[in-house]
Every structure is written in C-alpha cells, then in structure tokens.
Design a protein around this nucleic acid. Structure first.
Lengths: 133, 133
DNA sequence: ACGATAGTTTACGTTGACGTAAGTTCGACG
DNA sequence: CGTCGAACTTACGTCAACGTAAACTATCGT
C-alpha cells in the first residue's frame, strides 16, 4: 500500500537515489521529512517534491532553481504572479531545449554526411584494389 | 578579412569566451594554437574546433567527451568504425534530449493547467466580491 | 545481553570548468 | 630609455552536487 511515511531506505529504493542525496536535499531545504526520534520519515509531500526535483534535474535546472520553483509552486494560487514567472522560466527553458535539439539534429546530419563520404572513399579504394589484382 | 591567424584577444571577441578558457582548452588538448615567440596564434582549424566545442557544450557534452569526438572527427574516414561510434553517441544524446523535451512540454502543460485553475479561483472570488457590493 | 542492521551526524574529499591574482616577458611607442 | 599594454606562466580558489569515511545511536532478534 502506498504508505503514509517512508524510511530513507524505502525512498532510495523507490527513487533510485542515495541516502546522502536525500539528506543533502533536506539540508538544502528541498525536502522536509518529519522525525521520529532521530530517524527521518518522508511524507507524501516529500515524495511529490522529490519527483519534481528529479524531473527538474533532467531539465538541467540547478538545485537552487528547483528550490525556488518548488517554493513558488507551494505558494500556489495565492501569489500567482510568481506562478506566471515560473511558467515563464519553464517556457524559456523549453525554447532553449528546442534550439539545442535543432542544432543537434543538424550536427547529426553533418556527421552522417561525413560518414557516408568516408564510406564511399573506402568503397572506392577497395574497388581499385580489387581491379588491380 | 578572414585572417589566417588570430590572437587570443581576437578569439575572445569573436567567440565570446575568456582568454583563460582558450588557454584551458589548449591545456586539455582541445586546441593547438601555433606560437610566435610565446604568443599563441589560433589557426582556421582552431576556430573550427572551437565552434564545435561550444556547440558540444550546449549539447551537454563534457570537455573530455568533446575531445574524443574531435579526435574521432579528425581521424575521419581512416577509422570509420570510430566515426560510427561518434554518430551513435550523438544519436543517443539526441534521443535523450527529445525525451527531455517531451517531459518538459508535459510539465509546462501541467503548470499552465494549474495557472488557469488559479486564475479561475481569483476570478470567482472577484465575482463574488462584486456581487456582494 | 549482544551483535547485526539501519539510521544518524560531522566533516573532509572529489570532479569539472573555469576564475583570479601575482609576477614575468615582450614588442611598440613617445 | 622607460614604460605601457598585451600576452604569458604558475598556482591557488571556487562552486555545485554529492561521495566517503569515521564515530555514534537506536532497535530488533536470538
């Protein structure tokens, strides 16, 4: 069952991160696990946040940027000018990535061209060698 | 005119990088400027390589990866199994980026949804307030 | 009672990609 | 000749995002 609280180990297994990483995220105020004695208890909210953190990292956001985004997200509709800003940032990042993708696509095309060129050279030299025998 | 050799300062201006960066790239064997006395002279080849380096960085390649790619690129048709490997790597990176882009697109959609939701709340509360007056 | 198991804190180490500062050297110019 | 500016070398510093080691504590099962 989707238990209310998870230990650090369960979190590691569930999300494929190390305990160090989770503690580090807590120290950076990205997560706020409860405590039972000294042990951390990760809540549903922590899991939601971690999911967003990992997604953010895949997008190339820094942890600090992610923290700010999470904070804005938390404030929610209350301060929706902030939310608009968040969307703005995300949009810019998207535009960046699309530019990158287009560049990369072009670069790959060039490489493929180069590769075909190379193959022709090889083929030609082999033809010549064969003819010479 | 597209001069044969460029000084370090000209390179900086032309590519928007610092001198430190160029020296660093040389130390990492990404660039091979000639010398006239102790001064560096950057060749057409260096400029071509730098262009590729900067492009590579935008793709998220590390300098070490870029160095290997440049080396393979240099070897050219001679060892084209290597070139194929290069294309492979590039392809994987492209697939990565496409996944990222799709994720990001989805995330933006969610945010927009959230934003519209927030706006409706605001609008509704304002309507209520207006009706109350 | 006791060792194994999981968790904790503290704190120093690492990697990549440069920044930055100090001191040197060289050619050009007044 | 002096000195200025641009380039140089050497070398230590920085920042993010953890890794890793050491030493401690709490809980559980036998």
């Amino acid at each position: 069952m989707t238990e209310t609280y998870m230990t650090i180990r369960e979190m590691c297994d569930a999300f494929g991160v190390t305990a160090r990483t989770l503690r580090f995220y807590e120290s950076k105020e990205l997560l706020f696990p409860l405590r039972q004695g000294q042990k951390r208890l990760f809540t549903r909210r922590d899991r939601a946040r971690l999911k967003l953190i990992l997604r953010g990292k895949r997008f190339g956001f820094s942890l600090e940027e992610i923290r700010q985004l999470l904070d804005m997200y938390d404030m929610g509709d209350q301060q929706n000018t902030q939310l608009r800003r968040t969307v703005e940032i995300a949009r810019e990042r998207l535009a960046d990535m699309e530019r990158q993708r287009d560049d990369l696509t072009a670069a790959i095309d060039e490489l493929q061209e180069q590769l075909r060129w190379g193959e022709q050279m090889v083929a030609a030299s082999e033809t010549r060698r064969a003819a010479a025998e």
